[in-house]
Design a protein around this nucleic acid. Structure first.
Lengths: 252, 252
DNA sequence: GAGTGGTCTAGACCACTTC
DNA sequence: AAGTGGTCTAGACCACTCA
């Protein structure tokens, strides 16, 4: 009958749930190379027999592997180990404050300037607002252990987030404030390297021309531009991101 | 009875499957902010009633949202919209060849040097092999539309991948070759900015000191180091990565 | 104690693909 | 035509947590 079990569920609290154990089993075989790319993994009914469970259970596991990008499935043909998608990788970028704190350094923040203006031609290359739309332009410095860590150059579209005009960015991080007022959003990131110009160099307390890591992030909410931010990190000091990738993930 | 339907499945090919429609519905509400962080979304039995389906179906959707990091669930309490995890983001780095081709430029490749040596102290800072372990050190140039695009400085652990000693890296991309011979692996990435030293600048045909984007990738397979690669991109030319993130994803 | 989510079952129908 | 995966059902038991 439904809900009962013949061996599998008599010991549910052993370690993890059944589908987690099956998932781990299959992942191990794939990641270790025991099943190399192109290999056909057992059919659902075979896995049912091996693990003594219902088809829904193995199906759930296999669907998860598809979502993780580890396998692909074709009707009538079976399920196959996928080839890793090129030299691709999934990275994760923490926010600046978390980044500094995770390095065990003290974090500080200063608002250098905050001005309201109508979008210029240059602004509109960074943030897709109408010509003349009101913007808030912020320049902030992130400090780690007393030394400049990153320079933040941010535009906020006041048409999309009018409350930002009244926020006090001298005490509150713009990124944090936005998170609290614009719950979920889409973002696009762009990483490049550039030499520090005179003003940037002075604000970061590095020589002019220092190679900097520049991270640009543009943010939308339902198609409306919210903010565009450029973060300048002195590249000679320390790095930005590190992340390992057990799977291609996020492919779809 | 099982397998039959009362309204939902009479029109299965309409658009997407039922759980995909439910998922899209809920995601839209969350991403648009209609349900802001902390909001309690309907209980499973409420969603069952709303969509006229079985609990497994809504449960599958909600489990997916948990995996995507959009919601969190607590027994007895319910399911709640999560706050976006900091300013984090999931990026994706394509491999160099795909990157160049996707820009619509012609791709070229040259092996500058390939030598076999025992691991030095400097090597071991980059790749965690035993002292004196055999390494293959490769230096390659990626070319886009005839101009140097990136410089690849790679170490391969021959203990882990002995076949690499016989590969012809003058004609085959090291990254591609490794993908074909070391199916799945874990990788760690590190992005920084650095000025081009004299040799690097010459090989990239840029002035000495040009700010470069440096991407370092270290790769393991079941704990065994496979390869460590440094990619130098002239930062003044173009960028490296861009990616948008609808959800926190990959959180676990 | 009651209600939530977490998990699992034993079936079912269907679409699609390959044979 | 046969067999695969894709999806869905109507239950069930359990663990956990809150009131």
């Amino acid at each position: 009958m439904a809900g009962d079990d013949e061996g599998a569920k008599t010991e549910p609290a052993h370690d993890r749930s059944l589908h987690q154990r099956i998932r781990a089993d299959l992942e191990e075989r794939i990641l270790s190379g025991a099943w190399s790319p192109g290999h056909r993994i057992p059919f659902e009914h075979e896995l049912m027999a091996q693990y003594g469970c219902a088809r829904m259970t193995v199906n759930r596991v296999l669907s998860g592997l598809v979502e993780a990008g580890l396998i692909e499935r074709r009707r009538r043909a079976g399920s196959f180990v996928r080839r890793p998608a090129g030299q691709s990788a999934v990275l994760r970028i923490p926010d600046v404050k978390a980044e500094v704190l995770s390095r065990g350094e003290t974090y500080g923040y200063e608002l250098i300037s905050g001005t309201r203006r109508k979008a210029t031609r240059d602004d509109r290359a960074r943030i897709a607002v109408a010509a003349g739309a009101p913007l808030l332009a912020l320049l902030c410095r992130h400090v780690a252990d007393g030394r400049p860590y990153a320079l933040e150059d941010r535009l906020i579209a006041l048409d999309s987030v009018p409350e930002a005009a009244d926020a006090d960015f001298a005490t509150e991080l713009p990124g944090t404030w936005l998170l609290g007022h614009v719950p979920w959003h889409e973002a696009e990131h762009n990483i490049s390297a550039a030499p520090a110009d005179a003003r940037t160099a002075a604000r970061l307390d590095v020589p002019v021309g220092t190679a900097c890591l520049v991270m640009e992030r543009r943010t939308w909410r339902s198609g409306q531009p919210i903010t565009a931010v450029r973060l300048w990190y002195p590249g000679d000091r320390q790095k930005l991101v590190a992340r390992f990738t057990p799977s291609t993930a996020a492919g779809r």
